Amino acid sequence: MSTSNSNSKEEIMAEIAVPASVKVTKEGSVIVAKGKLGTVKKDFMKLPATVTVEGNKVTIKPYGKRKRDLAVTNTARSIIESMIKGVEKGYTYKVKVIFAHFPISVKVKGKEVHVENFFGERAPRTARIQGEATKVEVQGEDVIVKGPSLEDVSQTAANIELSTRIKDKDQRVFLDGLYVYAREEGM
């Protein structure tokens, strides 16, 4: 039988160095990252940890010292690092338009992406564009989704892919649709 002293556990903490080109501030429970590509905000209200911003350093300290608290700390660190990387470099997702019989056309109208003539359907299938700074453009057979927020860019690409989901048919035979094929950093 082994015993462990609870005082022997080390304090869990994560520090993130902020580059000079990015400004990170804290407004209540919201962390804001500003850079050359725009602004990304994330609310950490439900995070069981303390996030402090001092100069060019962000510190995350969880309330406990357990394995779960380490996971929470690493998740928060990853989110803040992706925010910093996003306002500095940006994110790009590429979606390929694939069809066999009916030629699919994709159009961007306001905050929606319309997929027309999918399997010859008369009504267009729509997908919402997430976030204010997310840009969607159609280049031939590709749909390019760009923006500073990884969350918004990836969700927009997923919305576009899910809008052409095929139900009640064998997906190995009916391959028509829009599919994400590349995830890149940089815009």
Rank of each mutant, 00 (worst) to 15 (best):
V72D: 11
F99P: 01
V24S: 02
F102M: 10
L70S: 12
V40W: 01
T126D: 09
R68Y: 01
T73M: 14
L70N: 04
A49E: 15
K61M: 04
Y91A: 02
R66D: 15
G120Q: 06
T25W: 11
G55N: 08
I104D: 00
G38T: 03
I129A: 09
F44L: 06
G38Q: 04
E116H: 05
Y91C: 01
V24Q: 05
K41T: 09
G55M: 12
K94N: 03
V40C: 00
E27Q: 15
M45V: 08
I31H: 06
V95I: 13
N117P: 01
G110A: 01
K61V: 03
T134S: 12
I31M: 03
E27G: 02
I80D: 10
R125G: 12
V40A: 00
L37C: 04
G64I: 05
A127V: 11
E54W: 02
K85F: 02
V72P: 05
E88M: 00
V72K: 14
R128Y: 05
K111M: 02
K67M: 08
K46I: 11
M83Q: 11
K36R: 11
K96V: 07
K36S: 10
E132K: 15
V87H: 12
V30G: 06
I80W: 02
G35H: 11
V87R: 10
L70G: 05
A123P: 01
P124S: 14
E132A: 14
N74S: 13
R68V: 15
R125K: 15
K94D: 01
E112V: 09
P103K: 07
V106L: 12
E112Y: 07
A127H: 07
A133V: 03
A33F: 12
I129F: 14
K107G: 09
S82I: 06
A127T: 13
T39R: 00
V24K: 05
G64S: 13
N74Q: 15
T92E: 08
V87L: 08
I60F: 10
A49P: 13
K135A: 13
K46F: 11
K46Y: 15
E88K: 02
T50P: 00
R125D: 11
A76Q: 15
V108P: 01
L47E: 05
T126P: 02
K135T: 08
I104A: 02
R77C: 07
A33T: 06
A123F: 08
E116R: 10
T134N: 11
E121S: 15
K107A: 09
T50E: 14
V95F: 04
T126Y: 06
H114M: 05
E27L: 05
E116T: 06
E88F: 00
K67L: 09
V113Q: 04
T25Q: 07
V106N: 10
N74H: 12
I129P: 07
K111S: 13
I98C: 05
N56W: 03
I84Y: 08
Y63H: 13
M83N: 01
P103N: 14
K57Q: 14
H101S: 08
R122W: 13
S82E: 15
G131K: 05
E88W: 00
G86D: 06
